[in-house]
Design a protein around this nucleic acid. Structure first.
Lengths: 110, 110
DNA sequence: TTTATTTATTGCAATATTACGATTAATGAT
DNA sequence: ATCATTAATCGTAATATTGCAATAAATAAA
């Protein structure tokens, strides 16, 4: 149905999925990489850098803001974006915990 | 349009997005966590564990197989699933490289 | 061979996502 | 006040995803 049955999963599972979903589009990956590369706020030249229409970029930025990974400050007619460091670190710890689950490589069953 | 313009992004960006998308659903997160927890192959009791209908689970398993994170071996009428360790480690290194990008915390611009 | 068990596939309905043109809102410049 | 610039929002089309009932396929058991 295109609708996810979040009720039947744990908060942790839903949180991991919500965060991962944000990375699940190359435009958002590219936006984040650019913000890291520039390493200061970017005043909305992302439309040129990425190559998608302005409303599309704006929509992707909104999703990144919704999960808190970036923040934007208004500067005149422009909006300056940058990584929200605290939230990024928090997200990173959640994701790495998931990626780093233990498995014994001794058990080779299939 | 629901269609992603993959052509305009790098292979790396598309790869990160493809992997992340798989984690972007709590059912697939739950399946992977269960496979890690059990730590041997699971002979399809995932339907009971997760709580979604059998065709739905089968579909999620297919997506996990498509990106190579799990493998399934036929064992009679059953199919036994487990983590594909090599591919998991490879995925982990790609994701961690992305999550671990450098930023100087000195620059506080917004 | 018939029946039971298990998993994959098909088909479909409901909802979500992606993308963009057109428009709006907000500020700056003239 | 008018115009230019920038970013958000609205509306909409195209496509993707999620979920499941029904069915098929494949093997095991009787």
């Amino acid at each position: 149905m295109g609708i996810t049955k979040s009720e039947i999963f744990t908060n942790q599972q839903n949180e991991i999925a919500t965060l991962a979903k944000v990375f699940g589009h190359p435009a958002r990956v590219a936006i984040l990489q650019h913000l890291f590369k520039i390493n200061t706020c970017v005043c909305g030249d992302l439309v040129n850098v990425i190559g998608l229409a302005q409303p599309t970029i704006s929509q992707h930025l909104k999703e990144l803001k919704n999960v808190g990974l970036i923040k934007g400050t208004i500067e005149g007619t422009r909006v300056c974006y940058c990584i929200d460091t605290d939230n990024w670190l928090n997200m990173k710890s959640i994701m790495i915990k998931f990626l780093d689950q233990d498995y014994s490589e001794t058990e080779e069953c299939c």
